[in-house]
Design a protein around this nucleic acid. Structure first.
Lengths: 355, 355
DNA sequence: CTGAAAGCGCTAACAA
DNA sequence: TTGTTAGCGCTTTCAG
């Protein structure tokens, strides 16, 4: 049986409220009493029961983290960073996998609401309306998406997509395909918008292919269509799709980058290990995990369920946008239309970074 | 403000204990009353507060899952499967990352003990003694390791290592290196033992190199030593190390599999995507995650903190061993000593499975 | 600075 | 079948 506050009180000869104060408001208790209580607690292996404490304080010291697919290599670094950040602030993290299913997402928010001080929704597939509505039940921070009125952390994939298109254009590519991601993905819309604008600016044509599942298979399945489309370069919604695409192109006899250049997005660990190594847009996933936790815990400590309040009493809705970078590796090479200055992007050092 | 049991009682004109029964023992309440209560609950968006319930029942309906490194691709499929299994049994999962640090592990067990009904320790680095001692505080299930008296789920990596050595021997390799994993890893000892025995049985010499960190870098760092050692084949502690090794060997001008054959262990998703595709021992990680959750929840429901009890009242300590298989891909090829029957393993179909 | 008392949301005997 | 009562482990007024 684990020791309770009563055991400690009895052992140290004080009332339970004094033991309570020793842990939750140490400055209110006489140093001598305090050290005696602490000694007894230590000896009995006592730890305050957080659930009981939560019942009365309203703060659980738990956080929920919802991701679409734990096995998607994009998420583990984010989860790891969030868990670490939370733990250092004395919080524990519930991790849940929604299988890209909006219905599961909603149910999970309800199920976890009472057990956490807030929820991190990573790349949620629910509608904006629903997310806003759910945010009345429990504080929410949204990652990889903008939802009006809610704090969010996004990676600037738009900028990344632009850099990718400019890189390809600089290499002499004018016919580029965009391998789209899942329908309803904010990231996908962002990439599409930015890539479209960038292509227009550099005078390239952009063919959008999709939507597709954001997986290796999603890329595999599109290889023939890419081949038929006659493009000389592809920007994929993420690295996994890019890798699947390259894989299948290879078995179709299409070489990367000599026949077709491919750029991914995310810079998952894997992208450094494939042959050819993948040119990709690096997104700072670990930083996003930390930032999301920080935003959630930035609430006024005295108002358990409140939103961040600015000094003048107005609500502030923080939006963090993290920069992305283009990492040039081996899956992109010269295209049919040589650029004005041949010594430009094409000559960039391998594994170089352009931002 | 979330609705409490009292709100529902008031709205439906019954006592709170009737509302309580409606949710935790529906058969004890009149069907008409029940549906009225349910309707009110639904209308108010009421959900029982699990923390409050746990306080009195002793069951939190939470599980803790401790892994050494979330970002290690071996773990995500296990976490995903465990989370899914737990959720379908109405449990939530705390996920924590210990950074391969035994001290963090111990602290985390204490910290989570009161908040969970049990803990899954995946590849823990703590001593057996400590684990046994901690198991008196909270039910523990150990994954990837045997601890006397505790339920455990292990993959039969010994069998896998034997298959790998036999495969290499069958290809004509007689000088084989074993790239060891981290010190203190049960899996590592098991591989080493089985590989040693198998090598002896087939008349090959086994050079053990290590210990090494279980990462890509761990493999990278050993490439030169492998080259110098003069072996023609390598069995690595895991796929990550195998991939790192191949990577560096390649840049040293050593080709895989023509110069050196390499076998990994785990069959992470990545191993299918590298060039050459990795021959490896597949470990059923998802099955392990599910099995571990099942073992933890297999306790007698009436004894919140008890161990599994056999019919005759004796304790049973379940040990699940999951089979592994050899997946032959492209990183292994013929060695200098041709086998007796050339049409044997060397001719196995690509991506074939031998078990 | 410390104790007494009330109560967080809920379940579990026990009566009625 | 339902209500009453006590209390899980803890924090938080309010007195003293």
């Amino acid at each position: 049986m684990p020791a309770t506050i009563r055991d400690v009180a009895r052992a140290s000869g004080v009332h339970i409220s004094t033991v309570s104060r020793t842990f939750s408001a140490p400055h209110l208790v006489n140093p001598e009493t305090r050290s005696r209580v602490l000694a007894c607690a230590e000896h009995l292996g006592y730890r305050p029961n957080r659930a009981a404490r939560a019942l009365i304080t309203g703060r659980t010291h738990n956080i929920g983290l919802m991701v679409a697919d734990i096995a998607n290599p994009f998420f583990p670094p984010l989860i790891k960073a969030a868990e670490s950040q939370a733990r250092h602030r004395d919080y524990h993290i519930f991790v849940t996998d929604t299988n890209e299913d909006p219905a599961v997402e909603e149910e999970l928010v309800h199920a976890l609401a009472k057990q956490v001080d807030g929820l991190l929704l990573c790349s949620p597939r629910m509608s904006n309306d629903l997310i806003q509505q759910l945010s009345r039940e429990v504080p929410l921070v949204v990652v990889n998406r903008h939802v009006t009125g809610l704090p969010s952390v996004v990676m600037d994939v738009g900028q990344g997509a632009r850099l990718a298109i400019e890189h390809l254009s600089g290499l002499g590519h004018r016919d580029i395909a965009l391998l789209g991601g899942p329908r309803g993905s904010w990231t996908n819309r962002e990439i599409r918008r930015a890539a479209g604008n960038a292509a227009r600016a550099v005078g390239a044509t952009l063919t959008v292919l999709g939507p597709n599942p954001p997986t290796e298979d999603g890329g595999l399945a599109m290889a023939e269509q890419v081949q038929r489309s006659g493009v000389t370069a592809v920007l994929a919604y993420n690295d996994l799709m890019a890798i699947g695409l390259i894989e299948r192109l290879d078995s179709l006899g299409v070489r990367v980058p000599s026949d077709i250049s491919v750029v991914g997005i995310d810079d998952i660990a894997l992208s450094r290990l494939t042959r050819p190594k993948l040119t990709t847009v690096a997104t700072p996933t670990a930083a996003a995990g930390r930032a999301a936790v920080d935003m959630l815990l930035a609430h006024d400590p005295s108002s358990p369920r409140g939103r961040s309040i600015a000094g003048d009493g107005r609500r502030t809705t923080a939006q963090v946008t993290l920069q992305t970078e283009l990492v040039i590796r081996d899956s992109t090479g010269p295209g049919p239309h040589r650029p004005a200055d041949p010594g430009d992007a094409a000559a960039a050092a391998p594994d170089g970074v352009a931002s």
